[in-house]
Design a protein around this nucleic acid. Sequence first.
DNA 1: ACTATCTATATAACTATTTATATAGAGCGG
DNA 2: CCGCTCTATATAAATAGTTATATAGATAGT
Lengths: 197, 197
Amino acid sequence: MALDHILLGLLRRPASGYALKKDFSSSLQHFWAAELAQIYPTLGRMEKDGLLSSRQQPSDKGPPRRVYSRTRKGERALHDWLVQGPESDRNRISYLAQVFFLGQLDDLAAARQFLGELRDEMATRLATLKGIEAGWAKQDPRYPDELPDEDFFPQLTLRMGLMKLAAGLEWCDESLRRLEQRMTRNHKQTGPAAAGP
Amino acid sequence: MALDHILLGLLRRPASGYALKKDFSSSLQHFWAAELAQIYPTLGRMEKDGLLSSRQQPSDKGPPRRVYSRTRKGERALHDWLVQGPESDRNRISYLAQVFFLGQLDDLAAARQFLGELRDEMATRLATLKGIEAGWAKQDPRYPDELPDEDFFPQLTLRMGLMKLAAGLEWCDESLRRLEQRMTRNHKQTGPAAAGP
DNA sequence: ACTATCTATATAACTATTTATATAGAGCGG
DNA sequence: CCGCTCTATATAAATAGTTATATAGATAGT
């Protein structure tokens, strides 16, 4: 499971479940999300399996926290995950499933509406990622090519997000243009159409 | 759940679970996969919920099959799914999670190896999609802009796949180039480095 | 006849994920 | 002091998805 390995990667330095969830919210969330209700039992299982160890620590703000560290075994598991090569993910993209069936709507205007909303969402996400990039660039003059390895690879994932979203936006625009052409065409030839003389 | 709605979309014409699985394998699989062991109980539940109806039919090649049709209620559910707007998917991309942590490998050559494998996989998938596109174009002279609506939207999803994979390949090449620069640089300045005079 | 493959359905066991809920201390605003 | 938010952990219940396995008729090849 990828969550296990992601937690191992994040546990480069010891952290509590709550802190790990924050790591997800900051950078990782764009390609992998996890809820606390999934993180806590996973950490417990991984400790049971000897991949992690934990100790309780008093907290200045709130109840005591359980801080996890990865063990030698955990480090090996992370290493193995990385050198085994890319996991070909069962990439589920639900909006494409919707697009696939848009032709079954009685009115193409509803399909246009759909693609317009998708375009807006992608534009928003692209703006978000650009904001993150700008922030990184501002606070570190070494951005992007003089960054330490530790930050180079996360930066690559951000770059992938930017490139995919740019491609997605381009696709939306192209699709909307083609759909509108199609709507105009259908409008003009209402009735006759189809077969030539 | 998206699987429910996908099945409703596929059931434009009545079909058995086995046949629906084949529909997945042909076109849909690139952005949504499903196993028979998931499809059968889902069809059962949807029938119980009144979204589908079924009847048994003798088969010429094998045991009798249960053929499902969507009900009026099922059609409404599909319609609602489409007009509600794009589902923002929790898009999980496990290879990006791996890339994120590649800096924790002791040897950057292993990271290069990883990105090379990813590049190869993407190139293969891109070739596959291009093959599908070529097949469609060959068997239908209306491809792509004179296709009936029914085929226009599936064709758009194929196009999205092509564009995303092209972006992905570009990213791999760019990342490999930058990683190799980085490796050369590290090699040259073994020891001194960092601070200027 | 034997074997493999394809059609066809189904279930059990397991793993993963989401949503809802409970608990409890600490700090802040009104 | 009351309610709100944040820190912090945890569990229950439900849903979703994967892997393994069982059954059985039909057809094609050896």
